[in-house]
Amino acid sequence: MSKARVLIVEDEPNIVESLSFILGRAGFDIETAVDGAEALQRLRRQVYSALILDLMLPGINGFDVLRSVRSDGELKDMPVIVLTAKGQAADRQAAEAIGATAFITKPFSNAEIVQRVSELTGG
């Protein structure tokens, strides 16, 4: 079977690098975007098994991206793992309300990320 393809949307380069490394090692195909606009572009061009989405993005933020995904006919069932550095209950509720599949607070455990992504991609 072909590798599941995961899109990481994150503006912090070091985090992008660590996520790419762990998920790459876990056997996923990784693509990245540094802001919301780029993420939406990629989502339109390519099908992904899952989306790892940071909420605080320059320009179009994570909430906007998630809303677009959920309102898109083709993308609306795609698993979206929301990452946030704020960690407040209000953010979590807001994210879940607009359709986040999972919610992970930074700093995260590498194992947890791999496990959640595997679960959601049917691995």
């Binding site: 912090e12 985090i15 660590s18 490394f21 762990i22 700093p107 995260f108 455990s109 590498n110």
Partner: peptide
Amino acid sequence: RTPMTSIRSFSEI
């Protein structure tokens, strides 16, 4: 949390 995320993640790696 942002720098801590990198620190934790890379330490684990």
